[in-house]
Amino acid sequence: MINLALGFARELLGRWGLWVLLGGIFTASQVSFDTTLGDANIGPYLAYVSLWPIALLFRCGWLMQKRRAEGWPLEERLRDPRGYRAPLAEFLALLLLMIGGLLLAGLAVLVPGVQSPTGGASLFPVSLQNSADGGWEFDLGGQVPDGGQMLLTLDWSQIDPPQQALAIRNAEGAEVLATAGEILRWPLQKEEAESGKVQLFAPAGTKLRLFRPLVRLEVPQPGGSDLWLLLLRQTLFFLPLMAILLALARFGQVRASLAAWAVFFFGSLAAYHPPTRLGDAGLGWLAKVFLLLKHSLPNVEGLISNGYRFERYSGTTSTGALVVWLAVGVLALLLACKRRAAR
């Protein structure tokens, strides 16, 4: 099986694959981390690196279709009556190439001359949903990663007699002391971070106001030292997609290149972050169908979050969702190994 896997991997790489990978990673690291050309943000680098598994997905679809046309399935039946060696070898080859590519990508920040991002915090504007007397309700636009907090700039000028500090609380009774002339930092409670909804109350009758345009959400930004973890998450996102491709092409017996496109869009749906308000997407029934489909999938956006502002959703995937996602992959791999009667 190892020989089969290595042969498949060699054919997947082709003559130029390795050079394309090395050149791509070098270019991506330069435009992301170079001291003059890059912007020291890990998100764009992750986005460039994610092209590698996507390319593998399509290349695998093309190669499987080519092999089918060459009569490989018949050969496999003769050589391996139980039918699990070839699909497992193909999966192993994909796994090897993905991990190899991501290992190279992880080494890029260690190259002398590149500027490893140091992390820090990113700020995001927040919309105020409702404002009643002494209370504010915020919509953070979905789940927030651990360590997220809200920054509120308060207007104390209407309070008579003037006050220096007041306690702000939420519906569950958690309190933070706000001081005049300082930004109020509200650490998000577990439920608030999960739901993305926050309701805060000022003491009744105090006329404490909020400078609405200045409300921000602060989210920790991963630095260079977190790159390996982020790359591992990307790998975990793509592995089940590869298994689904194998299942569709082998058990489903459909054209593998068509299956690759279907899996690609399935992955896009899994990575899709729905807009806070449906009106944002200019849609209708189609968006509702996709939203319904999206909500029936485990929440794995946090695995594949990349590009600028990636930290907003990075790491929001729960262990339960990850287990379900990987279980889908295992199931697909089992299906790929199951041989159907020849037609």
């Binding site: 994610s50 997407a281 996709f290």
Partner: peptide
């Protein structure tokens, strides 16, 4: 449907963030 969804419902195809970056 997915192509229509990408165009109309704002679903980003995988890898689009690389182009945006």
């Amino acid at each position: 449907l997915a192509v229509a969804g990408s165009l109309l419902a704002g679903i980003q195809p995988l890898g689009q963030s690389a182009g945006q970056s």
